[in-house]
Design a protein around this nucleic acid. Structure first.
Length: 509
RNA sequence: GCCCCCUUCGUCUAUCGGUUAGGACACCAGGUUCUCAACCUGGGAAGGUGGGUUCGACUCCCGCAGGGGGCGCCA
């Protein structure tokens, strides 16, 4: 690369949930690659799905990536010459570009209803045909299509796909990849609400922002032909693509929060150091030329080489991460350790949130630390049988914990009031007294059936930690033989959601 | 079902045609220590499978199997 053609990369998270460890992993590789090559690393917020977007999530992403010290050169908070860096603020650009494609005959308005699409899919499944849009509206004469659009008929814009041949593109670490056009669907570019889909927005933005290298997860390989084709339609040069292997659960499936903690902020709250986490992530699908395993951010960035990326999906191993974190902790001098521990949770501002909960319950300071210890822990140690309380048996306890997980995952806001509402709602559905329902949760969250107020505790602990403790509780119950297996679990979820939709009583038993 | 990607110890990986296949986490044993960690020493543990190519394959090619991903008006 020459100075006049510096490389530019980006990380483009979607603010629809808790910031994911996979985002940090991809960001780290982009960051290291960019620093090595001497370019700019951009943060772009992909908030084109207005139905799922939350502001809390966007803030959490910035907070999490900042905590990871993955500093971006341009982004929604720091600005930059290619802004805005939030897709919702670039709305008009996508519309213009989408329409440009329609005029050029590369895309067309599609008036098909959701109902028709559902029916089409059902038929395709039944006849074992490839699922995908059938091109129904592609044959509408442009004149007529224009008239119907002008008349305000609801529509989307779809891209045209070649009828035959194949798309050949180069992946920087995998080599040539060929995908037949018949296997690529006629992607919606502009949704009926006028927002672009990821595919359009990502191509338009990457071009306009001068992105030269796209390092992303391998889940994108199969939609790369659409992107390549869009670049061609626009007459733009496509960036280089490099698809990194996905982080995996111990069972090799794609890393998911149901099987592993995936929230970046969970790791912070559980007492991991960002440098240890970065170091560990740098070992996923990558190795240093000299075989070193302990290395800093800067050392990784100084030597990073895409050719050293390995392709097997790495299993995210909490034990090794914990060991690395321990090594970093041990290496620190006591002064630094004190500072870091203090800025973690041993600070006055956290105490000021916790203290009001204990103040009415203590006679001496000596009771303080024992009573609040669970705020500073990750996994709690209690006998698994303690989770089974009152008239609620083990299996029902497991189901209740599971339902609470779903409810908590669904909520964006995180205050004790919101949490309280969730549990009151659950108690009503279950026709249980709130007090009775809460018993196993007291144990799961605070480690004891008698403790400080639960909802406030959950608020202070944070959503990720609460979810994690529910998971630990579920595992403890599973150890006692109370486990909900795959099929039952799916059934429970389906029945429960149906009951929610109908706002009916739902009693797990 | 169709398409694509992947395949070295349990896990993360080194190896880029010739190595006793190396390291790390985890595990086991011993040592050290007021306990426990930490630390030190040692140990078990791997190239999915069948064909090629080659004097020689973990390494290159093909088939199969296994794993993963994708097939949304989600990203």
């Amino acid at each position: 690369m020459t100075a006049s053609n510096p490389i530019r990369t980006r990380i483009a998270p979607s603010p629809t949930g808790a910031p994911h460890i996979g985002t940090a992993y991809i960001a780290l590789f982009n960051y290291a690659f960019t620093k090595r090559m001497g370019g700019q690393f951009i943060l772009r917020i992909e908030d084109t799905d207005q139905t799922r977007y939350t502001r809390e999530s966007e803030n959490a992403i910035l907070e999490a990536l900042r905590w990871m010290r993955l500093a971006w050169d341009e982004g929604p908070d720091v600005g930059g010459p290619f802004g805005p860096y939030r897709q919702s603020e670039r709305f008009a650009m996508y519309r213009d570009h989408g329409l440009r494609l329609v005029e050029a005959g590369h895309a067309y308005p599609c008036f098909c209803t959701g109902a028709r699409l559902v029916k089409l899919r059902e038929e395709q499944v039944k006849t074992k045909a490839n699922p995908g849009y059938d091109g129904h509206c592609e044959s509408i004469p442009p004149e007529e299509a224009r008239r119907r659009v002008a008349a305000g008929e609801l529509h989307v814009v779809r891209m045209k796909i070649p009828a035959d041949g194949e798309c050949v593109f180069r992946d920087r670490i995998r080599g040539e990849i060929k995908i037949a056009w018949t296997g690529v669907d006629r992607q919606v570019l502009l949704k009926s609400d006028g927002y672009p889909t990821y595919h359009l927005a990502n191509v338009v933005d990457d071009h306009l922002m001068g992105i030269t290298h796209v390092l992303r997860g391998e889940e994108w390989i199969s939609s790369t032909p659409k992107h390549v084709l869009l670049y061609k339609y626009f007459g733009w040069e496509a960036p280089e693509f490099a698809h990194l292997p996905l982080l995996r659960n111990p069972d090799k499936s794609k890393l998911s929060k149901r099987k592993n903690p995936t929230g970046i902020l969970y790791y912070r709250d559980a007492g991991y150091l960002p440098e240890a986490l970065n170091n560990y992530l740098g070992l996923m699908a990558y190795s240093m030329p000299d075989g070193r395993e302990i290395f800093s951010f800067d050392e990784l960035a100084a030597t990073f080489d895409l050719d050293r990326v390995s392709l097997g999906g790495p299993v995210f191993d909490l034990q090794k991460l914990a060991n690395f974190n321990g090594q970093y902790l041990r290496r620190m001098d006591v002064r630094a350790l004190a500072d870091r521990a203090t800025s973690w949770k041993l600070n006055p501002s956290l105490w000021q949130r916790i203290l009001p909960l204990v103040q009415p319950r203590i006679n001496t300071f000596s009771e303080l630390v024992p009573m609040t210890a669970y705020f500073f822990a990750d996994q709690l140690h209690y006998p698994p049988a303690a989770l089974i309380t009152g008239d609620i048996d083990g299996l029902r306890t497991a189901r209740l914990l599971k339902i609470a997980q779903w409810e908590i995952e669904k909520t964006a806001a995180w205050t004790s009031e919101v949490i309280k509402a969730i549990f009151i709602g659950m108690a009503e559905k279950e026709t249980l007294k709130l007090k009775t329902l809460l018993m196993p949760f007291f144990v799961a969250i605070t480690g004891a059936p008698v403790s400080l107020p639960l909802f406030e505790s959950m608020e202070i602990l944070g959503k990720d930690m609460v979810l994690r403790r529910l998971q630990y509780a579920l595992e403890a119950l599973a150890g006692q033989g109370f486990t909900i297996k795959g099929k039952e679990l799916k059934q429970l979820e389906a029945v429960y959601e149906a009951a929610c939709a109908a706002s009916k009583t739902f009693i797990t038993s």
